[in-house]
Amino acid sequence: MPVPALRNVTRRLGHRRWFAAAARVLVPADRVVGRLTRGRVVALGLVPSLLITTTGRRSGQPRGNPLLYVPDGDAFVVAGSNWGQPRPPAWALNLLADPAATVTVAGRRIPVRAHLATGAERDRLWGLLVREWPAYETYVERAGGRPVHVFRLTPVGGATAGD
């Protein structure tokens, strides 16, 4: 578990434009650390994080990305904020094209099926995400009206988010 003070500082800095820019640059390093630690260390352990592997909608190749998540019962909830960029992240577009994916959480690989949340379900899940990472609200403003996709990733084959 991360040091609470460091986690709180990180959550406050998440609203800053420079923080999002720096974090985007560090994502490739975070991918490498996540792979080397088999998903045990993602985002330096500062927020609940997973590695998602989707199938590239154009290439057909596996594509991995570290993401913040919140648990929701047996599932994982993620947001396609792309740090507030005008375009959605590629992993979200990949899930829209093919909802089958794999997440790696604390070293466990779990096959999941993505469901794009809408309406009241999206509002509820968005509330969970914003409680964990308040900067998501800032990212929505920066995205200039682009919808931020919220996905509920449900394990297939009996695994759960809480295992």
Results as ranks from 00 to 15, higher is better:
residue 29 A to S: 11
residue 68 L to R: 09
residue 120 A to H: 11
residue 158 G to L: 05
residue 72 D to P: 03
residue 34 G to R: 05
residue 93 L to R: 13
residue 140 V to N: 00
residue 52 I to L: 13
residue 104 T to F: 03
residue 138 T to G: 09
residue 22 A to E: 00
residue 136 Y to I: 05
residue 88 P to D: 15
residue 112 V to Q: 03
residue 128 L to Q: 13
residue 106 A to W: 00
residue 61 Q to F: 06
residue 150 V to Q: 06
residue 154 T to I: 11
residue 139 Y to R: 09
residue 26 L to V: 09
residue 19 F to G: 00
residue 76 F to E: 03
residue 81 S to P: 08
residue 60 G to K: 09
residue 95 L to A: 01
residue 1 M to W: 12
residue 43 A to F: 15
residue 158 G to M: 02
residue 159 A to V: 01
residue 159 A to Y: 06
residue 111 P to Q: 08
residue 3 V to L: 05
residue 2 P to M: 06
residue 35 R to E: 14
residue 143 A to T: 07
residue 71 P to G: 13
residue 15 H to I: 04
residue 143 A to Y: 08
residue 152 R to W: 07
residue 113 R to L: 11
residue 43 A to W: 11
residue 161 A to H: 01
residue 152 R to E: 14
residue 112 V to M: 03
residue 24 R to A: 14
residue 19 F to I: 00
residue 103 V to K: 02
residue 154 T to Q: 15
residue 134 P to H: 10
residue 91 W to N: 01
residue 35 R to Y: 07
residue 37 T to K: 03
residue 97 A to F: 01
residue 136 Y to P: 05
residue 139 Y to D: 11
residue 3 V to Y: 00
residue 130 V to F: 10
residue 155 P to V: 08
residue 42 V to C: 11
residue 35 R to V: 10
residue 23 A to I: 00
residue 19 F to E: 00
residue 129 L to C: 14
residue 32 V to Q: 13
residue 58 R to D: 12
residue 126 W to F: 09
residue 64 G to V: 14
residue 133 W to R: 09
residue 28 P to D: 07
residue 78 V to H: 04
residue 113 R to N: 01
residue 116 L to G: 01
residue 17 R to D: 13
residue 154 T to L: 12
residue 132 E to C: 13
residue 67 L to V: 11
residue 24 R to T: 04
residue 3 V to M: 00
residue 85 Q to W: 14
residue 132 E to M: 12
residue 154 T to M: 10
residue 155 P to D: 04
residue 34 G to F: 07
residue 78 V to A: 05
residue 162 G to A: 09
residue 73 G to I: 08
residue 83 W to F: 15
residue 89 P to N: 08
